[in-house]
């Protein structure tokens, strides 16, 4: 059964930081801008402790929200 499209996300591989995830998921973009974009889509990781540190279980969005959720 086909699922409707959902906002794409990934989880970190052991040892990965923002730059690694940007390289893996946004390979066609300028590295600095890719990190910037990733962080802007994942503010939830900065709103909790430890701020901005990626944990193994974290959902990391690799695109902005799909639609205006209202």
């Amino acid at each position: 059964m086909e699922l409707s499209r959902a906002r794409s996300f990934t989880t970190a591989r052991p040892g990965e930081e923002w730059a690694d995830i940007a390289r893996r998921t946004l390979a066609d973009q300028d590295p600095g801008q890719a990190v910037e974009a990733l962080q802007s889509w994942n503010l939830h990781l900065f709103l909790r402790q430890p701020r901005g540190r990626i944990l193994g279980c974290d959902v990391i969005f690799t695109e902005p929200p799909l639609t205006d959720a209202g």
Partner: peptide, 15 residues
């Protein structure tokens, strides 16, 4: 609620 440049939006919660 955060509004992105492409018009989409998302919510985040702060303590």
């Amino acid at each position: 609620r955060i509004r992105y440049g492409d018009g989409s939006s998302d919510s985040v919660t702060l303590d």
